[in-house]
Simulated assay, not measured.
Amino acid sequence: MMIVRSVAELRAMVAAWRRAEEIVGVVPTMGALHAGHLSLVEAAKGACDRVIVTIFVNPKQFNNPEDLAKYPRTEERDAELLGPHGVDVVFAPPASEVYPEGFATKVSVAGLGDPLCGAHRPGHFDGVATVVTKLFGMTNADRAFFGEKDWQQLQIVRRLVKDLNLPVEITGCPTLRDPDGVAMSSRNGRLSPEDRAKACVLPRAMQDAAAAIASGGTAAEALASARTAILEAGFAEVEYLELRAAEDLAPLERPDRPARIFAAAWLGGVRLIDNIAVPEMSPA
């Protein structure tokens, strides 16, 4: 496994793979890898001849400088984790390689980036869309793999690929969870042991709400009960807790099409996000 810093070196390698008619996959990450990331790598290995993992803490998707400063940077450990998984290249460019002097372009996906995290993190998804578009151009990959935990991000990436006619196939991979149901995230490592023990209430409350809605209960009542349970468990704030359409993220009152519950909540100074599918409503 090689660690590459420059676009020119990466492109030369990818060009050789393409001459050999090999399928190239990419797993974009910001590092601080965990088993969820490794599941994306395994999905890529199963579908591609060559796999690139990118590690780049993208400053343009952080609207809070403190959050950017606190984001864990563990490249050496990340490389050790990736070693046994047959990754061909880790692309870990410096910021100057991604955003050289004079960089002036922004990719923005209207609509999908506005609600949920977009409403609470202004500019976040513009930063995501811009860096993902750049990474696709840098890696020239055939397929890209993203986790479903960041469902809104996944839908935005799918839309920009479609709208911009980018020649890359997007694969969403299931959210990996710890045994207590908490979605795996690099941010979980910032929770104290006491707060980590409370974190399981978020997915449990979401599951209870999903079951209630699927059984015919109103979304408003089910989500209100879930919000109360989350706050009573010790969360400082529920930023949002909503039922929305899975594809276009339109707000819903009932799951009359594929739907998901989306949540963001603060616990111990850490912002946790999650989403779960809502089962089809039971027949009346």
Rank of each mutant, 00 (worst) to 15 (best):
D126E: 14
G113T: 13
Q153R: 10
Q153Y: 03
R159T: 13
K106T: 15
R177C: 05
E148D: 13
L116A: 02
N165E: 14
E148S: 09
W151L: 04
T130L: 09
R143S: 12
S108G: 10
L116V: 01
G118N: 14
D178P: 00
A110Y: 06
G123K: 12
T133E: 06
G137L: 07
T171N: 13
E148I: 11
L154T: 12
V161P: 13
G147W: 01
K162F: 11
P167S: 04
L154W: 06
K162W: 07
S108R: 14
I156M: 05
C117K: 09
Q155M: 12
G147Q: 05
G113F: 10
T105W: 00
Q155N: 13
N140W: 08
L135E: 12
D163T: 09
L154E: 15
K106P: 08
D150C: 10
N140Q: 15
G147E: 08
T171D: 11
V131N: 01
D114V: 10
A141I: 05
Q153C: 06
L154N: 10
T105A: 04
L164S: 13
A141K: 02
V107Y: 01
W151V: 08
G113P: 02
L176C: 13
H124F: 10
G127W: 04
K149V: 06
R143D: 08
P122S: 15
F125K: 07
K134S: 04
L176E: 14
P115R: 01
Q155W: 07
P115D: 07
T175E: 00
C173V: 15
G113Y: 08
G123C: 14
T105I: 03
G123F: 14
N165M: 14
L135Y: 00
G113K: 09
K106I: 15
L116T: 02
G111D: 03
L166T: 14
D142P: 10
G113R: 09
A110G: 04
H124K: 04
A129L: 14
R121A: 03
W151Y: 15
P167W: 06
E148N: 07
L176P: 00
D163S: 08
V161T: 08
V131H: 02
A144E: 05
L176R: 11
L112C: 11
T175P: 04
I170N: 02
V109D: 07
L160E: 13
W151E: 10
C117Y: 09
H120N: 15
G111K: 04
T171F: 13
T175H: 05
L160V: 12
L176N: 06
E169V: 15
F125M: 15
Q153E: 11
G172P: 08
C173N: 09
V131P: 00
A141V: 03
D126S: 08
L154C: 11
W151M: 08
L176I: 15
